[in-house]
Design a protein around this nucleic acid. Structure first.
Lengths: 139, 139
DNA sequence: TTAAAATCTAGAGTGCAATCTAGGTCAAGC
DNA sequence: GCTTGACCTAGATTGCACTCTAGATTTTAA
């Protein structure tokens, strides 16, 4: 492949998305595509640019913590065509809230970690490690 | 237990930290404590408030994505007492950077997700789902 | 004193998300 | 035509971080 206009091999798609060929076959088994991927006469997968676009969105959703099961639900909605936009919206809104919460949690943890860093930095710079030994109050 | 001043049972610690008793035993096997946890004559673990404080910090580090292996390195440093503060600082600084990067990634993903949400919201509110069908350009 | 609740150990099992293996088949370039 | 690399399937394996099981012991409360 790699030579038809718009006909992409699994390797092409792997390169374009950063996913491995194993992952792409896994995604297909898990029904994470928005359409059945056609095959050549010899049985090899033929992707199109739209599949790559979809996978790039999947990457964003996965990276932001969406489980495969939820991605599967979303893919199923898109696959079944127009008419369920409200459901897609609800799913995306829920994920948006999840990501916002995750960012808030991380930000809170970051503050605590930064406080520790500041304390350690001070002690290390001063060479006065004494008084800073154990977990508390400033591990 | 639960009756000595400062003598906490594994159940007490589980309650105080949100970790399960299984997780606490797992942490101990993995050498994630900053000291050997002593036992009663009968062999039951006796924790102190400082252990709880340490575990609460562990929770923050874990929640913010620190792998067990790194937490183990940090615990080993603290366990071996004063003198390695520069190493502890380096470890914390590295984790701080990791968390900052993670927040940046999530924020970037959130923007993309939010764009999708806005698009879907518009279509759903208008009742005009037409033109919005497939992954691209606005799945 | 005795029943119930909590704890102990060693090791097995779970869930997620890949990732790899083995044993082939297909396709591209020389 | 043939070699080499890419691809195929089904299923096993991996890695992480718990989480649970079984069967025994200890502790607490009535």
């Amino acid at each position: 492949m790699s030579r038809n206009a718009d006909g992409l091999s699994i390797g092409d798609v792997a390169k374009a998305t950063g996913l491995g060929v194993h992952a792409l076959r896994f995604f297909e088994r898990e029904e994470l595509f928005i359409r059945p991927i056609p095959r050549t006469a010899g049985g090899q997968r033929v992707y199109e640019p739209a599949d790559v676009e979809w996978l790039l969105l999947c990457n964003r959703l996965r990276e932001s913590g969406m489980p495969i099961a939820t991605l599967k639900r979303f893919a199923r909605l898109v696959r079944s065509g127009p008419g369920n936009e409200a459901e897609r919206l609800a799913l995306l809104e829920e994920h948006e809230r999840t990501v916002q919460d995750r960012i808030a949690d991380l930000t809170a943890s970051l503050e605590i970690i930064h406080d520790k860093v500041v304390i350690y930095r001070k002690h290390v710079e001063e060479g006065t490690a004494t008084g800073l030994w154990s977990p508390m109050p400033s591990a």
